[in-house]
């Protein structure tokens, strides 16, 4: 290795002098050596990645966390005009069985009036049941409006006391600093009155 450094520095040898040791032809022994080293390095690389993966994957949600990633909710006991809150993936989920008036109001809003335009039909699977993640899209507080005694804001839906965001009967942002409507999570009706969240 140090020999090459020496030859680099050597500027005095005239170009016309032919070098006695041919560099162009690589001996068979050398190609075998190169292959050996390459193979070893390759195996080392495979080994390193194989070892790294379990550690990286250990950070992914563990089996017990994943088991709680889906939650079944029985809606039988929820009456018209009643709201319940369930916990899903550590977050509150608002489930409201809307009254006919609330549904009518939600459907009759002009999309142009909305900061985050979304028709009510896009936010519900069954119009009676409004299901959304109860976290204000501004800075993450839990809006009020689930309890009968809670303030519901100017649009009859939910009101976030932290910075004064008002949500309507479809959970859409109408007034206040929040930029987006309350998020509708992934869910499906497994039966008439049973949903699976997530």
């Amino acid at each position: 290795m140090s020999a090459t450094a020496a030859t680099l520095k050597n500027k005095t040898s005239p170009k016309k002098v032919k070098k006695t040791s041919p560099k162009k032809t690589v001996s068979k022994k050398e190609t075998r050596r190169e292959f050996l080293y390459l193979a070893a390095a390759g195996m080392g690389g495979i080994g390193a990645i194989s070892v790294a993966w379990p550690f990286i994957d250990s950070w992914n949600p563990a089996a017990d966390t994943l088991a709680l990633s889906s939650v079944d909710v029985n809606l039988e006991a929820v009456e018209v005009g009643q709201s319940i809150t369930v916990t899903w993936r550590g977050k509150p989920v608002f489930i409201r069985r809307r009254t006919a008036e609330e549904i009518k109001e939600a459907e009759s809003v002009e999309l142009l009036d909305l900061r985050d335009p979304q028709p009510d039909s896009e936010r519900v699977q069954k119009t009676e049941w409004l299901i959304m993640v109860g976290i204000c899209t501004h800075l993450g507080c839990v809006p009020l409006g689930q309890k009968v005694t809670d303030p519901k804001g100017d649009y009859g839906g939910w009101f976030c006391p932290c910075h004064g965001s008002h949500y309507d009967t479809s959970g859409r942002i109408r007034k206040g600093p929040a930029p987006a409507n309350l998020i509708v999570p992934e869910y499906e009706f497994t039966e008439d009155t049973m949903i699976r969240l997530g």
Binding site: L36, A39, A40, M43, G44, I46, G47, S50
Partner: peptide, 8 residues
């Protein structure tokens, strides 16, 4: 893997 790698 380690057997092959060690031999190599």
């Amino acid at each position: 893997f380690l057997l092959v790698f060690s031999i190599l």
